[in-house]
Design a protein around this nucleic acid. Structure first.
Length: 713
DNA sequence: GATCCTCGAGTTCA
DNA sequence: CTCGAGGATC
């Protein structure tokens, strides 16, 4: 924020009215941005002192020219996120992502998988739709009684951002629909054409504004404007290709449903075509690939979907992707650049990860200067099973390497040009000791990663553990992000070396020579806010605490299972210590949890058996008020005391979730159907268990009926 | 024992 | 987003 430097400011008293107008606009923008940075990110972009100074200046000018006060004046904003951007909208039907195919074989496999799942032979007819995959950003439009009521971005698939006002500014999105279902969510892609993109960028240049790297960035930037008038001035368009919630089905096939959307007034892609079998799909893919440069908009692949909607329903979903669709991606853009150095990073679990430092190069519209090298074998040109990658060529410092962005995101090294290898380049020697703490770095038999054995002695591991501790699914303390934790770790006075230290920070600050509020970038208010935010988190649910401990193999999902099983800290703590011998009732009980195996159990109990680590855990727990997870009353639950078996694919919950939920309701969950079974919940793909249940006269219901039964529909 | 699926851990850049 | 690996299922 260059312009925010105090030295460049003119004294308010000297400025003209014109200058005041410009200055108020500028201050309002800077302060709004600072607010966003402060609340939304780990590191404030300007110090508290600068912030206060700018705000004072704003007030002074407003007092001098009251009539120039802006409607969005910073003085009118009371604390809190001034514009946390957009409100949130929960999608009634989740917005999923797609699985990927990278070559023709993947497409053949996709078809084979579906046929197997549906019980079709190779010769049975199975139609797919194939359409270009637009490279923009997805948007969900909700219409009620034919009126556009809201528009939301994909977000994390569950909750998106409310961009209704902006969506209404997009020319080819209808605001009203004639003859549509009472509820209709239309999904599609917002994009910008090449011509419009070029025109926008030259206009930006003339106006002295920054230009966009590519049409997708331009489209994303234009849709996520707080001022809809800016969106209006940007040439955005929308292709419809799917739907979410619906009051009645649009058609019986994908193709007909899309045609219906076209008839309702949405732009649909003319290159959508019915294909029978993998060879026709691939043929259409090649056609689209040839047409690609002349389409006038960016696409990054071709999407295949099972055409028959009944079959789509039968195929259902995996956790984040539908089984009935796949995206066949075009080869990623490649670029050659020099690999300047290989550096080693140490992660929370001690994993040594090699990273390539590259001479900056543009790949797919983004400047890349780092790339992941995964592990020791990857550098050598070996894959996990001892096979070869890059034709077995190893990577050396100084090499000319070809990089691409996997999934258009993560930079990787695709190839090495041996003819350009500098003379004297030697094979990379992977360190055998931790570069941060010099402890031995050991690679377990059969493991791909080498790990630092320093444990808590290793500063890198300690810092990464702390970063994990304050991360989103864990303690998530406002104003204490990864950056701050690292600073505090190294601070001589306010040292935060383990989680418990966070909670003693306020008390220790009171004793410190230089109090936090007197330091650079801090002030009275921000220091107090931080201490308050920390105190607010003392009361915390058990599952978050377990996750925050950062025990290897125990992530968010396992923490939820454990918390539900043990219900409160005292019981969990006791069980972990009793199970330390890795035998006996407590150990068996731990392993009986669906989703917990021997490896995870051993990792867990070790953390509680190891003296220093356990002491650190106790110091933390002492500072907290850990909430037991709610265990719904079991009395009167419709499944209390019953034995339930799940089989087939569950679509709305994982098997582990289903089991935990059923147990919470007092049911016993078993793995096989027997005479004692009361109920079988069968998803698609159920096999022998369903047959056996029928033989034994056990009641069989599907997932939806189950959810309705337990009142979770 | 093979195979499918999900989770955990690590990674980049705007 | 992707890889590796743990866990469940057949």
């Amino acid at each position: 924020m260059e312009q925010a430097r105090k030295g460049e400011l003119i004294e308010p008293a000297d400025i003209s009215e014109e200058q005041a107008i410009a200055e108020l606009a500028r201050l309002s923008a800077i302060l709004a941005q600072a607010n966003l940075d402060y609340h939304g990110k780990d590191t404030p972009t300007i110090s508290d002192a600068d912030y206060d100074e700018l705000k004072r200046r704003n007030t002074a000018i407003e007092e001098q020219f009251p009539h120039l006060k802006r409607p969005d004046s910073p003085t009118e904003q009371v604390g809190g996120p001034l514009a946390d951007g957009f409100s949130k909208i929960r999608h009634e039907v989740r917005m999923l992502s797609l699985g990927n195919a990278f070559d023709d074989d993947d497409v053949v496999e996709f078809d084979a998988r579906i046929r197997k799942y549906l019980g079709l032979s190779e010769t049975d007819r199975l139609a797919y739709t194939a359409e270009p995959k637009i490279d923009g950003l997805s948007l969900s439009l909700r219409y009620e009684q034919g009126q556009l009521v809201h528009a939301a971005t994909r977000g994390d698939g569950e909750v998106g951002e409310n961009v209704t006002a902006n969506a209404k500014m997009i020319g080819n999105i209808p605001q009203t629909l004639a003859d549509a279902p009472e509820v209709l969510e239309v999904r599609g892609e917002v994009y910008m054409s090449h011509a419009d993109f070029a025109a926008l960028n030259s206009a930006q240049e003339v106006a002295g504004a920054k230009s966009f790297a590519n049409p997708r960035n331009a489209a994303a930037g234009s849709l996520r404007q707080l001022d809809p008038n800016i969106t209006k001035s940007r040439p955005l368009a929308f292709f419809a290709y799917a739907w979410g919630a619906l009051s009645y089905p649009l058609a019986e096939t994908q193709m007909a449903a899309i045609a219906r959307l076209g008839a309702l007034g949405f732009q649909i892609n003319p290159l959508t075509k019915i294909c029978n079998g993998p060879s026709e799909l691939v043929a259409h893919y090649k056609e689209i690939e040839i047409a690609r440069p002349d389409l006038g908009y960016d696409i990054d692949g071709v999407v295949y979907k099972v055409d028959d909607l009944t079959l789509q329903r039968r195929l259902g979903f995996r956790s984040t992707t539908p089984r009935w669709a796949i995206a066949h991606k075009f080869a990623a853009e490649l670029a050659w650049t020099r690999l300047e150095a290989i550096e080693i990073q140490v992660g929370r679990t001690g994993a040594l990860s090699p990273v390539a430092r590259l001479a900056p190069v543009t790949v797919g519209g983004v400047v890349v200067s780092n790339a992941t090298l995964h592990n020791e074998d990857y550098i050598k040109g070996l894959d996990s099973k001892g096979g070869e990658i890059r034709g077995g060529k190893d990577i050396r410092e100084g090499d000319l390497v070809q990089v691409y962005r996997a999934g258009d995101v993560i930079p990787k090294v695709a190839d090495v040009d041996l003819s350009q290898r500098p003379e004297g380049a030697v094979p990379y020697v992977f360190p055998q000791t931790c570069p941060e703490c010099d402890s031995a770095a050991i690679r377990e038999e059969g493991d791909a990663v080498r790990r630092c054995t320093g444990g808590l002695i290793c500063p890198a591991q300690a810092v990464e553990k702390l970063k994990h501790f304050v991360s989103r699914g864990a303690f998530d303390i406002d104003g204490l992000g990864a950056k701050q934790v690292e600073v505090f770790y190294h601070d001589d006075q306010l040292k935060i070396r383990e989680p418990a230290d966070i909670f003693t920070l306020r008390a220790r600050d009171a004793q410190a020579l230089t109090k936090l509020k007197n330091r650079d970038g801090w002030g009275e208010t921000s220091a107090r806010n931080l201490f308050d935010a920390i105190d607010e988190r003392r009361k915390i649910p058990l599952n978050r605490v377990i996750f925050a401990l950062g025990i290897r193999h125990v992530g968010e999902s396992a923490s939820n299972l454990l918390a539900r099983h043990y219900n409160n800290w005292a019981d969990f703590d006791l069980a972990m210590r009793e199970a330390a011998s890795q035998e006996g009732a407590a150990w068996d009980d731990l392993l009986s949890i669906d989703g917990v195996g021997a490896v995870m159990a051993a990792s867990l109990t070790q953390a509680f058996a190891q003296e220093a680590e356990y002491a650190s855990i106790l110091r933390l727990v002492q500072e907290l008020d850990i909430e037991a997870v709610e265990r719904p009353a079991q009395d009167g639950s419709p499944v209390a005391g019953q034995t339930v078996v799940f089989t087939g694919t569950l679509e709305k919950m994982t098997r582990a979730e289903a089991k935990a939920r059923a147990e919470a309701l007092g049911a016993k969950v078993s793995g096989s159907v027997s005479a004692k079974t009361n109920l079988l919940v069968a998803g698609p793909g159920a096999g022998s268990k369903a047959t056996k249940a029928a033989d034994l006269g056990v009641k069989v219901i599907d997932e939806d009926e189950w959810l309705a039964l337990i009142g979770d529909a």
